[in-house]
Design a protein around this nucleic acid. Structure first.
Length: 551
RNA sequence: GCGCCCGUAGCUCAGCAGGACAGAGCAGCGGACUUCUAAUCCGCGGGUCGGGGGUUCGAAUCCCUCCGGGCGCGCCA
């Protein structure tokens, strides 16, 4: 709809151009839905933007444009308003077309044309050294839904989880389990502070003991630690996969850092960086000259003890991503990693890639609360509340909706009581309820033996009530909401839209009846309700939230 | 000290590529179920958009500065 208005304006501008006999720089102008209904269905600021080049007052320019607008059947009227806005008022039939379109396209309504742009969304990527906590849940929800939205908007999307399965942390993990294992066998050892303290370490040790007895006690320490490291890593990763699966999150690829190291890709990159003069030795370590690319200081790639840093792997990983032919990389990180943005972008640049091709979304912290009071830690000392427990308590739908109904830049208060409540504090039910209500109408019609003609054949012209027009306008915005959420990488726009759409429907439902009205009206309203149902369902699917038929 | 994010109604948050008088929900008060689910709807009150400068025809939105909060500043991940 917006596009059609835009074409009208452009066509008018071309005519003006001809008449004036001079070139006008056609500016990038806005067409927006005004906040106030009295300002029409769409408004444009184009006249303001032309004041310089035409050297006339905005209202005069607006008049010039309006006088050159081509005639159209679906425009009710055009007004010049305020300091020089042009307001467009559409006929009801224009909005009715939207319903027709939804009925025809069904779940494909709002889908963008294929863009032929390959995007890799990398998210969660939590180290397999402990269970996922609620912060990972937010990242998972955002990453997964953003990937859904991007795919729906027409991008070619892949989802990936990067596993840090080598290095010091994995060794410490193995060592931690090993020590707990020895404790089970009656040996007491000092348990270092920087080892993994959680109860789950003890559980893992117990598992090994129950399966294999004291076998590892007689093994050389190094060998045992390695075995425990591998076992614990795999075991924890398996659980991470299970929790994510239950959260509706699946990945196309689980990318192992180990393969990157073992294939020699990390070493090759280091050699290349040295050859290019982008890496240098100092104090026994190898440094990447990231400060040359906007980072505040240089960063270590190889420590003096000969071990490579995670950063070295990260660079090789991003190089690998680009080599796989992606046009856009989206990384979703916890906000506590923001200090790494500059260095990874510096790396992109050093490796010859446009740093703009890497978009990093920083997700702010989640504060877990219960009835307004902070739940900082679980009863298990030193652990965050596991995501698994949160999901068991509040369910996937509520959790995902809450995680997604907030801009990533904002801190999120996640209140367990609110997440379980069934009122507008927790809008997931509000949206789902709208969907269920439409389903309920269908069911009731069936029970009463009322049958409707195929939706495509229904005459929509009776849809003229103000509530109906408003509803149709909301439906018309859906494709733009998708496009906007994808372009800005802001999935939170979608749940907000769905809440508004549901609200518009609830209002309509309370005021007007569908069944029991004379045929033409009942049929048209039924078709409208079906359109609402379709859009809500599509939207909820993109969020990974179910659309129940009854509640 | 430096860097990133945030500061909008009592609370939780929107504000869409600067646009026309700043929005929603919750909380408070008052209403609506013999009719498609009241997990809903309707009405009322409530804000110097943290403060101050600047850019602009126009700023919650962009720039500068100050104040407040969070996070990060390791040859840790």
């Amino acid at each position: 709809m917006k596009e059609k208005i835009k074409e009208l304006i452009l066509s008018a501008l071309r005519k003006v151009q001809k008449e004036e006999g001079k070139e006008i720089d056609i500016p990038i102008f806005n067409i927006e839905v005004p906040k106030v209904e009295a300002h029409g269905d769409f408004a444009t600021n184009v006249a303001f933007l032309l004041t310089r080049s035409l050297k006339r007052a905005p209202r005069q320019i607006a008049a010039l444009i309006v006088n050159h607008l081509p005639a159209t059947a679906w425009l009710e009227k055009v007004e010049i308003a305020g300091p020089g806005f042009i307001n467009f008022f559409l006929k009801e039939t224009a909005w009715q077309q939207v319903v027709k379109e939804i009925i025809t396209k069904k779940e494909d309504y709002g889908r963008g044309d294929p863009q032929n742009i390959k995007v890799l969304v990398e998210f969660v990527s939590a180290n397999p050294t402990g269970p996922l906590h609620i912060g990972h849940g937010r990242g998972a929800a955002v990453g997964d839904s953003l990937a859904n939205i991007l795919a729906f908007a027409g991008y070619d999307v892949r989802r990936e989880y990067y596993i840090n399965d080598v290095g010091r942390q994995m060794r410490i993990l193995g060592h931690s389990v090993y020590l707990r294992y020895l404790e089970l066998l009656g040996e007491q050892h000092a348990f270092p502070k920087d080892f993994y303290q959680g109860e789950y370490i003890k559980d893992l040790a117990k598992e090994v003991f129950e399966k294999e007895g004291d076998k590892y006690k007689h093994m050389p320490e190094e060998e045992a630690i390695l075995a425990f490291s591998r076992y614990a890593g795999e075991r924890i990763l398996k659980e991470i996969k299970e929790v994510l699966d239950g959260f509706g999150v699946q990945f196309d690829n689980w990318f192992s850092e180990k393969t990157l190291v073992e294939s020699g890709a990390v070493k090759e990159l280091l050699v290349w960086l040295k050859e290019q003069g982008l890496a240098y030795e100092k104090d026994g370590a190898l440094w990447f000259a990231s400060s040359r690319f906007g980072d505040e200081k240089d960063r270590v790639l190889v420590k003096a003890d000969g071990a490579t840093t995670y950063f070295a792997s990260d660079l090789a990983y991003h190089k690998n991503k680009m080599e796989r032919g992606f046009d856009l990389l989206v990384d979703i990180w916890g906000a506590d990693h923001h200090g790494y943005v500059a260095r990874v972008k510096a790396g992109m640049q050093a490796m010859g890639y446009d740093p703009e091709k890497l978009q990093i979304l920083l997700i702010q912290l989640v504060h877990l609360k219960r009835g307004g009071k902070p739940v900082a830690m679980s009863t298990r000392a030193g652990e965050f509340v596991p995501l698994k427990e949160v999901l068991e308590e509040v369910g996937k739908d509520a959790a995902r909706f809450i995680f997604l109904t907030r801009s990533c830049d904002s801190h999120l208060d996640f209140d367990l009581e609110v997440a379980k409540s069934q009122n507008m504090e927790n809008p997931v039910f509000y949206v789902q309820y709208a969907h269920a209500r439409v389903c309920s109408i269908e069911k009731m019609a069936k029970e009463k033996g009322i049958s409707f003609p195929p939706l495509e054949e229904i005459d929509l012209s009776p849809l003229t009530e103000p509530e109906e027009v408003r509803l149709m306008k909301m439906l018309a915005q859906f494709p733009e909401v998708i496009e906007g959420a994808a372009r800005t990488l802001e999935p939170h726009r979608l749940p907000y839209y769905l809440t508004e759409l549901a609200g518009e429907f609830h209002r309509y439902y309370n005021k007007h009846r569908i069944l029991g009205m004379p045929d033409p009206i009942a049929q048209a309203r039924f078709a409208l309700a079906q359109a609402v149902k379709t859009v809500i369902k599509t939207g909820l699917n993109l969020l990974g939230v179910s659309a129940p038929e009854k509640m």
